[in-house]
Nucleic acid binder design. Structure first.
Lengths: 371, 371
DNA sequence: TTTAGCACTCTTAATATTAGAGTGCTAAAT
DNA sequence: ATTTAGCACTCTAATATTAAGAGTGCTAAA
């Protein structure tokens, strides 16, 4: 409220605007146009109602007339930053408008508020120790904080090195193999054995594997066992190597989704067709499985924003995705993100994703000490 | 088609019906009325269209007139087995009608078709070894087979006995504890330690725990460690005991849901309000967390069917739930189920749930050999 | 360059109209 | 004692009609 009034003081005529402070990146985007675009987005994000020239002038007490605003909006539309749903409707932002907003207009996404940080930290403290569920819980916290759908991918290791392997007999011919890697990943796998095997033998095998293969990655292990002779030992070592390989492959990546309900209630999804389309995109569409590996390998380290599919993902047309990597680059990384309607609070989503990815990185770092 | 014609031969007059074969359980439900109810349900399940007297007579070539059918339908309605959406619409089954159908009219749900069984078995073969994901995969297979939403609860143990515990150093003061119980459950837990501790010491502790506490449950362990003196050993043993307790408590139960998309496309959910309501019930409603523990402790061993919430669960009003227990009674059990609109193919859902619960039981049994 | 004024367009809601589907009831037929 | 033909009646669903109002774009004046 007070905020809006402050900003209006910069807002007199276009000329005055152009003369002012910021080194303008484009001839077209005068300060006044920026301001109008900003207001259109702000209002539309809050209300999901097309924004009219009158409303802008009245609500924000601008020292210019609705007609002037209309002229400017017409220009903004010509350049593709906003549109009309129909002739006699107010303006709504286009994807290009959101893009410009996110890059130039939005207040720099700061941190979340301190109380919020505390709430999240508190929840994370509990997550920390619950290895099985921590990704799901992280997704759930993210969804709640960003008030949208959250996705979290299980972390993917680039070079898994054995920290420890245990073999536990389950039945005469069935054993459980638990593999822990240097980066803290745990993978369980059942092995069916050709011969009945006692726990003593399994223990002896695992202790030999531990002492001889500790700290090695898949390639080293494969090399190492080439000239081993004990057939049983080699069989198990092979299974171990396979397990490490499966960790490095993407097909092990799991995606946790939470908070569909948050998004479902947004007014843009009062249209049943859209709601269904959007749900399916998120549950089983092709976009996420494409984007996530990209983010994992991207050079960009920070938060990435994809608005309305950005012409690449048809099924994300109505959605925006805010993503960041978490983990330790080059060793073990995953993705955490927020999905919502293009009309989302970008600032909040970005802050959330940034903060949570940070926390998740800390957790992983802790867990993967090279101790 | 041929099937329907066969059945019609029993269908002449009400009197003839009453005289016939089956020992009738109620005065009211003559064979003819049963047949009509059956047809109404069958048609409605296929088409989601209210079923008219004419349609019944024509499509099934009944040797009676539409007027007679109307009279019978009026009776069925008076007794609450079917209803009208409005005066000039055909009949649709009520929950009571579905209930009667499931109990008396439906062909006994047999097994799934052999090819289907093979498909499922094939998928299960892969699930078998993937311990981390097997529940999710089971849910996913169930959803696909029943063409509805599937839920699977993680199995809950009544009396967890230690099979093996391993401690793996992660950082100086951070260790990973992996607990495997007799019934094959694996639980990982991070421990933060008061003092820096080397792997050797951790290994020595775990081997002592293994040898002294093998096969014991939480109570026995608590008893056992009372007079231990090694402080560190006691600390760890306590954490172990806590972990076993958490396995026995319900708060560890996780619910896997799959196939929301299947249900979303049903025509009854063209109404956006219903769709949202139903999604929320399934994602976060109170009904499932109430029902599942009931099923876990119920005397009823077979498949249970809850139609339209059966007056107990307001948020399931539009849904039916088909549930069965899997696992080993008294040791470790979970729940697998199918959720869909009340207008579901009960036969198929029941067969599916029956078959899958069977397979899951086998898997668990295999895994929990008292070897 | 800005703005007042105004014609114009399009949406949305409300209201009417109509055809047809399917029933319930009555009275005749078996 | 059932069953059925016949028919009046009810309600839906689709389509058209109307009217009010929101908000624009354009023109001409400030």
């Amino acid at each position: 409220m007070g905020n809006e009034q402050d900003q209006n003081q910069e807002l007199t005529t276009a000329k005055a605007g152009e003369v002012q402070n910021t080194p303008r990146s484009s001839e077209f985007m005068t300060d006044r146009r920026k301001e109008i675009l900003k207001i259109v987005i702000k209002e539309y994000v809050n209300s999901y109602m097309p924004v009219s020239s009158d409303a802008i002038v009245n609500k924000y007490r601008l020292p210019i007339s609705p007609a002037t605003v209309r002229n400017e909006m017409a220009e903004l539309e010509r350049e593709g930053y906003i549109t009309h749903p129909h002739t006699s409707a107010g303006r709504i932002p286009s994807d290009k408008g959101y893009r410009f907003f996110v890059e130039h207009l939005m207040e720099r996404p700061g941190s979340l508020s301190v109380p919020e940080q505390h709430t999240i930290q508190h929840q994370f403290y509990q997550i920390q120790l619950e290895l099985n569920e921590w990704l799901r819980l992280a997704a759930s916290v993210t969804a709640r904080t960003a008030q949208n759908v959250a996705v979290v991918s299980s972390p993917h290791a680039f070079d898994s090195r054995l920290k420890r392997v245990e073999l536990i007999g389950v039945q005469e011919r069935l054993a459980l193999m638990v593999v822990v890697t240097q980066d803290g990943t745990i993978k369980e796998q059942m092995l069916s054995l050709d011969e009945p095997t006692a726990q003593e033998e399994l223990s002896s095998v695992s202790s030999r594997l531990n002492s001889q293969l500790f700290g090695q990655n898949r390639v080293q292990i494969d090399n190492n066992i080439k000239d081993w002779t004990d057939e049983f030992l080699v069989t198990i070592a092979n299974r171990l190597s396979e397990t490490l390989r499966s960790l490095e492959q993407h097909n092990d990546t799991q995606l946790y989704r939470e908070g569909l309900a948050n998004m479902m209630n947004q007014p843009e999804f009062n249209d049943i067709t859209r709601l269904r389309q959007v749900m399916q995109s998120i549950e089983s569409g092709p976009a996420l499985p494409t984007i996530i590996p990209e983010v994992l390998t991207s050079d960009e380290a920070g938060v990435q924003v994809i608005i309305g599919g950005e012409n690449r993902f048809e099924d994300l047309r109505l959605l925006s995705v805010v993503l960041a990597r978490y983990g330790i680059d080059g060793q073990i990384v995953g993705v955490v993100g927020v999905i919502g309607p293009t009309r989302m609070e970008y600032n909040r989503s970005i802050s959330t994703v940034k903060y949570i990815s940070q926390l998740m990185t800390n957790l992983l770092t802790e867990r993967s000490g090279s101790f």
